[in-house]
């Protein structure tokens, strides 16, 4: 039986973190990763800590990684520049690579073959946020689909695992697991692999990091 995982919930307060965790249980998730700590979590779900590092220079990224690795179960790097993307692709402390959703920023910055070669075989994953596929005008959505599909083609060629997360900042932005796999159809991802992207692939990353950090399940 699959255990569904949402590795990217971005609540703004601890109370909202708790509300989103409770909703995740209702929607059928078994594991979540939050950028804010939640209180009063019950045993039906495991909650991991996550940090999103946004850096423009590789020095900034290295400093942030040094500070964060032992404190967070999941480290995701939003690659705002090529320099940071290259550094994140080869640093073993990084778990997830994500790229900006803004088309203007993505013009010069995407998952290229060089970064993919550095990432290949390391267990680091490329992350898609479903929130990038929501709340957009048809023109912007079309651009987002094309940008992500371009990255996916490179990731597939280099056998880089892909994780699909909600990227939800509010409870209303959260969707049930099958809705996320349905949204993956916009990217021409078949249903079976889309299910892996929200279950086995992120679960393996969580388990690996919990073992490394000596955390219980």
């Amino acid at each position: 039986m699959r255990h569904y995982v949402d590795l990217h919930l971005r609540p703004s307060t601890p109370e909202q973190a708790q509300e989103m965790t409770n909703l995740a249980i209702e929607l059928g998730y078994r594991h979540v990763a939050l950028t804010k700590q939640a209180n009063g979590i019950d045993g039906r779900i495991t909650v991991a800590t996550r940090v999103d590092i946004e850096a423009r220079k590789s020095g900034e990224l290295l400093d942030a990684l040094k500070r964060s690795r032992r404190r967070f179960t999941i480290i995701s790097v939003k690659c705002l520049t090529k320099e940071v993307a290259r550094m994140a692709a080869k640093d073993d402390r990084v778990d997830l690579l994500q790229f900006p959703d803004d088309p203007a920023q993505r013009k010069q910055n995407w998952l290229d073959h060089h970064e993919a070669a550095l990432t290949e075989g390391t267990g680091r994953a490329y992350e898609i946020n479903a929130s990038d596929l929501l709340a957009t005008s048809p023109t912007r959505l079309a651009k987002a689909i094309n940008m992500i599909k371009r990255d996916l083609a490179v990731a597939t060629r280099h056998d880089i695992p892909v994780v699909l997360s909600s990227g939800a900042a509010t409870p209303l932005a959260m969707r049930e697991p099958r809705a996320l796999t349905a949204l993956a159809s916009l990217l021409d991802i078949d249903e079976e692999y889309a299910s892996d992207m929200i279950s086995t692939i992120p679960e393996a990353i969580l388990e690996r990091n919990r073992d490394k950090l000596g955390e219980g399940p």
Partner: peptide
């Protein structure tokens, strides 16, 4: 069914108020 699920998931507001459709 998958297309309908994606369409329902894509609805983010109703009557200019944030909303979510969940199957």
């Amino acid at each position: 069914e998958r297309f309908l699920r994606a369409s329902l998931a894509s609805i983010v507001s109703v009557s200019d108020t944030p909303a979510a459709f969940r199957v």
